[in-house]
Amino acid sequence: MVAAAAAEASSLRVREVSKSFPVPDDPVARRLTLDSVSLSLAAGELVSLVGPSGCGKSTLLRLIAGLDSPDSGELLVGSEPITEPSAERGLVFQDPNLFPWLTVRRNIEAGLVARGVLREKRHEADEFMRLVGLETFGDAYPHHLSGGMAQRVALARALINHPKVLLLDEPLGALDAFTRMRMQDEVLRLWQARRTTMLLVTHDIDEAIYMSDRIVIMTQRPGRIERTIPITLERPRDRSSADFLRLRGDILELLHFAGNAVAAV
């Protein structure tokens, strides 16, 4: 019972959320970015969000992170409404955004310092550096790291707070193809070890199929949920299996169709 309640606490619900932004050169007009989006993630679920650029994926992630607030609608983690950013909801951007003035170790410890628990939990920094394979780089400064290493530090920095929900905004988008595939496995490993609820924004259909339990497809602006596709392939998944490729073809077709539909309206 207790375990079920704990699991329930890290579920994520987005109900009828809309968000618009002012148009830069027009003081009155506002552009609708998200139009009544509803989405829910069970605890421990890994869901990918794909869609054309400018469809409001990143906006939705910022709303869930609490960095912006919606015009209407409701966002909940467990039964708690989201009103402001919190260490419960980690966010990793495409740019690792490591603090360049801190060493790798201090970057990873940042969350502990921010929450004022560094003294008790300092050992966790070692644990997380090991987890992402950077234990020998503790004293290096971020600009000495490769893109993949920097992104691993960013992941460790987000994970050290044990967030209930981890939001990933194209975290692997800037990496080369090989590093990217390795990092996908890395993220999956972390996810399986910690069972954190994860919402992954990506442009890469392969990545979405390879990693997620479900793929949510969004339409062009204003962003709406077009469709949700459950991925039931056995893990670990084979990127070249027939099922994988068929699914990939279906989704690509769907995205193409979704694009045309919007253009017709």
Binding site: R62, A65, G66, L67, E84, P85, S86, A87, R89, G90, L91, F93, D95, N97, F99, W101, L102, A110, G111, V113, A114, R115, R157, A158, N161
Partner: peptide, 29 residues
Amino acid sequence: TRASYLDVARTLGAGRAYLIFRVAIPAAI
């Protein structure tokens, strides 16, 4: 100060003192 540094710090649970003294000031050095 890059807004994304402040955003990251806030999602790590940073309060105002952290944002000023450990993000904005180091970034401004």
